[in-house]
């Protein structure tokens, strides 16, 4: 009952703008605390890997960015479904807000992966499974971005990008499986929610903090971008005028 009411209220940009102020600040504070704690912990207090030495510490920025980038794409697909099924304007705002964040995180994951690969594998760029999946993810983001840029009409732009996001999200598991199957040079997944981690706790605890922090950070940036977009779209309405008065 409560959820249903919440869902209907989400249709109102004004309501969302007002309610999201608190969420945004919460995410920002949580992200700041978690990321600072995680980075200091990972850089100075986590033990060095017995094989890779201190270059192992790159994991604490590499894995969170890659994980969150993928989640951001999938949330775009979910927002696309919401846009098609319920015609919720807010969903398009969410897609628009997710795009730059996802592109940045994917690019960061590729960069830190390359920098990590140099001391570990002796090469800046290795065509292995996860590198390719992440690169494909970047191309998927760029594709939606380019499509949005090409369509001037705001409604059609939303629907077109939602369609691509949905098709892309359906394809992500297939792409991931095929690419992983094609070549797996990386160590198997270093962090998973369902399996018992193979790393010692002193190593994965800061990673967990960083992953949570990165999720909070993405939440903060996406919410902030959504709020900017809402103000832009609603600038002729009464409530937006009253907001700044």
């Amino acid at each position: 009952m409560f959820l249903r009411e919440f869902w209907h209220k989400l249709g109102s940009p004004k309501w969302f703008y007002q309610i999201s102020t608190g969420w945004m600040i919460g995410f920002a504070v949580a992200a700041l605390v978690l990321l600072v704690v995680g980075m200091v912990w990972g850089l100075a207090f986590a033990p060095a890997d017995y094989q890779q030495g201190n270059s192992f510490r790159i994991i604490y920025v590499h894995v969170p960015t890659a994980m969150v980038a993928q989640s951001v794409y999938i949330s775009m697909g979910v927002a696309g479904i919401v846009l098609f099924v319920w015609r919720m304007k807010l969903a398009d705002v969410a897609i628009a807000a997710c795009l730059p964040v996802g592109m940045m995180l994917t690019a960061l994951a590729l960069f830190s992966g390359g920098v990590w690969g140099r001391p570990t594998w002796g090469t800046w760029w290795e065509w292995d499974g996860r590198t390719v999946s992440t690169l494909v993810l970047l191309f998927l983001f760029i594709g939606i971005y380019a499509l949005r840029e090409a369509i001037p009409d705001i409604t059609l732009r939303g629907r077109a990008s939602a369609l691509v996001a949905i098709v892309g999200t359906i394809n992500i598991p297939i792409i991931k499986y095929s690419v992983d199957w094609w070549h797996t040079l990386h160590q198997p997944g270093s962090f998973s929610l369902t399996e018992k981690p193979t790393m010692p706790v002193e190593m994965w605890a800061p990673l967990l903090v960083m992953v949570l922090g990165m999720y909070c950070f993405a939440g903060y940036i996406i919410l902030a971008r959504m709020r900017i977009e809402i103000l832009l779209r609603e600038q002729r309405t009464q409530w937006a005028r009253e907001l700044v008065a």
């Binding site: 510490r57 690019a107 990590w116």
Partner: peptide
């Protein structure tokens, strides 16, 4: 001995996060 790589990765990440904020 891996300072360059570690600080490059952390630096780029921090710069991008702070920049987008």
């Amino acid at each position: 001995g891996h300072g360059l790589y570690v600080w490059l990765a952390y630096g780029a990440t921090c710069a991008a996060l702070v920049g987008s904020a």
